[in-house]
């Protein structure tokens, strides 16, 4: 597991039924591209987050496949429909097999 990986998400706490809301996500991760060399000239192996998924109440909002050209500390902003109250689930998949998860509830009133 890459060191100091910490997911964070920004989701409004509440919305009206049927609203489209903006979600922002950021996860601290070096996204080592596999293109760099260390001071001895050896290639530093690739180590990135290769997939990010957001679901709402078990249904998919967005599913992103990621390559080394995504910047350090990957950031995504996207829109989601909120037909009812429930829970957003966020999952990041690391090259090394680690999975980072975060969840945020939203109420509809």
């Amino acid at each position: 597991m890459a060191k100091g990986v910490r997911p964070r998400v920004k989701v409004p706490g509440s919305a009206s039924a049927g609203d489209v809301i903006t979600i922002k996500t950021l996860i601290s991760h070096p996204m080592e591209s596999g293109q760099r060399k260390d001071s001895d000239g050896n290639v530093i192996p690739r180590s990135i987050i290769n997939r990010f998924v957001c679901d709402f109440n078990g249904e998919n909002v967005i599913d992103v496949t990621m390559e080394p050209a995504i910047s350090t500390n990957p950031y995504f902003e996207f829109q989601a429909m909120v037909p009812e109250g429930g829970e957003f689930k966020f999952t990041w998949y690391d090259d090394d097999g680690s999975v980072y998860e975060e969840a945020k509830s939203i109420s509809v009133g």
Partner: peptide, 12 residues
Amino acid sequence: DFDNPAMIFVDE
């Protein structure tokens, strides 16, 4: 602050 990547390090 959410867009500012410096805040990752502030959290640390």
